[in-house]
């Protein structure tokens, strides 16, 4: 074995083809010195022009897309832009606060912080049909507001082209139009996170 390998090395040196190299260099030298024909020039330029003339739509920017967290709620697929979502968590404990509206389910301890949790079904007055798990919390927030939205299941994050979002008919979704961005091509009901977070009717502020 040892011997074979010793033999193989000088062999490879022999075949490191100096002739081949020289041939290639000559070809290259010729190609450089030779002036391309008019037709050749024309075809190269045409090809370049074709590339440049291509519709830039192919190179889409991030602004054309909405990154959406999709979740399931009462057998419907909903979505909310991830810019308004700070975390998701399983719902383990829930402390109801007496005297609050039915959509407010209670408080949870989210990473040491107190967070109120709402049921969108109740807030949107959607028909209360069926029994679902409702044991995931989506934490939505901006500078002024923060609360948890309950979901049955987190479906995942997906990019949705903004120009493919269609206006939603409230009759179709049961959700009041003001809270909707629209409906995606895949029939995901897209909620307007900004509106939801700014909505005064979600804030509980009893009279003294």
């Amino acid at each position: 074995m040892e011997r074979e390998r010793n033999n193989a090395i000088p062999d490879r040196h022999q075949t490191s083809d100096w002739d081949e190299l020289r041939r290639r260099l000559t070809a290259a030298r010729e190609a450089i010195s030779r002036e391309p024909t008019r037709a050749e020039k024309q075809s190269i330029l045409m090809a370049r022009a074709a590339i440049l003339a291509q519709d830039p739509a192919g190179e889409e920017t991030a602004a054309d897309y909405a990154e959406v967290l999709e979740f399931r709620l009462a057998h419907e697929l909903y979505g909310i832009e991830t810019t308004y979502v700070s975390a998701t968590a399983p719902l383990l404990e829930l402390t109801p606060i007496p005297g609050t509206p039915p959509f407010l389910l209670g408080l949870i301890n989210h990473r040491g912080q107190i967070l109120s949790v709402i049921d969108l079904k109740k807030f949107f007055d959607l028909p209360d049909k069926g029994l679902t798990d409702l044991n995931k919390v989506i934490v939505v927030q901006n500078d002024e507001m923060e609360f948890g939205v309950l979901a049955d299941e987190i479906a995942g994050v997906r990019q949705i082209r903004r120009n493919e979002i269609q206006p939603a008919l409230p009759t179709l979704t049961g959700v009041r139009e003001e809270y909707l961005l629209g409906v995606s091509r895949e029939r995901t009901v897209l909620l307007d996170g900004r509106r939801l977070l700014a909505d005064r009717s979600l804030v509980i502020n009893d009279e003294e």
Partner: peptide, 14 residues
């Protein structure tokens, strides 16, 4: 002592 979260500004009795 912790608050009631941002959504609950004031809840009677709490």
């Amino acid at each position: 002592v912790k608050g009631l979260g941002k959504q609950l500004r004031h809840v009677r009795n709490f």
